[in-house]
Computed example of a mutant assay.
Amino acid sequence: MALSTIISHDPDTFIAAFAGSIIFVVSAIDFAVWARVLLFAASMMIGLICSEFSAQVLSQLSSKLLGLGLDVPPVVGAVVSAAAAVRLLMYLTTRPKKTGSIFDHNFRKGEK
């Protein structure tokens, strides 16, 4: 699956996802080296898979919020999604001291 994902994209998108993954790894200094390698691979795959979707979301946001009719290329979407996706997932699963994670707060069993 990973190989088919890499092969199906343009070289530009691949390089952009690689760059976004590098941005993530450089900013993730609080993890061990082996964890950063695994997170790099996950970030790279997410960047490749979500490149077109992220580009469409960025295009819509630029037109709705800024009033600009930008056509964001998938290369930019690959950089943004690779750099942000794993960090966003890690943020959602962290446990603050008092309240717990966002998932714990919204999906507790037995509480409504």
Rank of each mutant, 00 (worst) to 15 (best):
I46G: 10
I46P: 01
I46N: 10
G47Q: 05
G47T: 00
C50P: 03
S51Q: 10
F53D: 11
Q56S: 14
V57I: 15
V57E: 09
V57S: 00
V57Y: 10
S59V: 07
S59I: 04
L61Q: 12
S62M: 13
S62E: 09
S63M: 10
S63D: 03
K64L: 14
K64A: 13
L65K: 07
L65Q: 02
L66C: 09
L66H: 03
L68V: 11
L68W: 09
L68Y: 12
G69P: 06
G69D: 15
L70N: 02
L70Y: 05
D71R: 14
V72M: 10
V72T: 06
P73F: 10
P73Q: 09
P73D: 09
P74N: 13
V75G: 02
V75H: 00
V75I: 13
V76I: 15
G77L: 08
G77R: 04
G77M: 07
A78D: 08
V79E: 02
V79G: 06
V80D: 00
S81W: 01
A84Y: 04
A84N: 04
A84V: 09
A85F: 12
A85D: 04
V86C: 05
V86A: 06
L88N: 07
L88F: 14
L88K: 08
L88Q: 02
L89K: 08
M90G: 08
M90Y: 04
M90N: 12
Y91F: 14
L92I: 07
L92T: 03
T94K: 15
P96C: 06
P96K: 09
K98D: 15
T99C: 09
G100R: 02
G100T: 06
S101G: 10
S101R: 01
I102R: 06
I102C: 07
D104S: 04
H105T: 13
H105Y: 14
F107K: 03
R108M: 03
K109P: 00
K109Y: 11
K109I: 14
G110I: 07
G110L: 07
